[in-house]
Amino acid sequence: MNIFRFLGDMSHILSFVILLLKITQGKSAAGISLRTQELYMIVFCSRYLDLFWNFSSLYNSFLKVVFIACSSAIVYIIRFKSPQKDTWNPELDNFPIQYLIGPCAVAGLLINQDWTPFEMIWAFSIYLEAVAILPQLFLLQKQGEVENLTSHYVAALGAYRGLYLMNWVYRYFTEDDYLQRIVWFAGTVQTGLYIDFFYHYYQSKRGGLSRPVKLP
């Protein structure tokens, strides 16, 4: 464990807290992509199957359960719970996620670490996580303006993987046999997708005023 990875996990937890607060207190899922939340639920439920046989640390096992529980709760609330379910707009949030899941599944089959069934599923989840934010970014693009809490949610989510990039650099230079090309590549792509958002987020927050984030 290093500070980058710890801060990355905290940033990821923060993103869950912000989103759960927004949809439970704000009683609205407007501006939130259910598609992205469904993809995250698939990512965590597939990647953390090894909950049942890998116990690298209590910290890891605990957070795996938390991430599966939170992502499932978010999908449940937006899909089934009133009044949130009425604030979800299927016409707007209509990114064809099958075009993300399909290629990631093929990639997981073809490019993975040890050719065991779990490694294929693990690689699939890594690739899918890299592109899971796309429906959310497309939804924000359509709306042009980003609600304040949603902008903090996306920023925390982007920061989490950005901090993981630093964690991988740190581990590469401090550990001998550390090599995780799959997650390095996918994590770089994932963070790259946020760069445009971060630019507009910074511009809108720079003046200290909480001017709304505007996406062109």
Binding site: N54, F118, W122
Partner: peptide
């Protein structure tokens, strides 16, 4: 082993 032993990150 079912795999994933060296994935010690979340």
């Amino acid at each position: 082993a079912w795999g994933g032993e060296d994935h010690d990150e979340l």
